[in-house]
């Protein structure tokens, strides 16, 4: 490691707040892109599964109704 101590890594001779803020925002932006995609996927799965279940129940109801 270039820095001598952990504290030196955090402070970066005064530039620490700027550097760490940038990387913090960067990680948040990149992670939120990932989370948004994942969440959309989960939402879609839920929606499509619910639709499939509804369809099955309707089919069953139709079959029993015929009897």
């Amino acid at each position: 490691m270039y820095f001598e101590s952990f504290a030196a890594l955090i402070s970066m001779e005064g530039h620490g707040p700027y550097v760490w803020f940038s990387y913090g925002v960067g990680i948040v932006v990149l992670a939120s892109l990932l989370v948004a995609a994942r969440r959309r996927r989960a939402q879609l799965e839920q929606m499509l599964k619910a639709a499939a279940r509804r369809e099955q129940q309707q089919n069953k109801a139709a079959v029993t109704g015929e009897r």
Binding site: M1, F3, M12, E13, H15, V19, Y23
Partner: peptide, 16 residues
Amino acid sequence: LAFVPPDFKQGNSFRI
């Protein structure tokens, strides 16, 4: 962030 030496003109801000 941690292993590269700083730029001698800009200092540590260059890590961005």
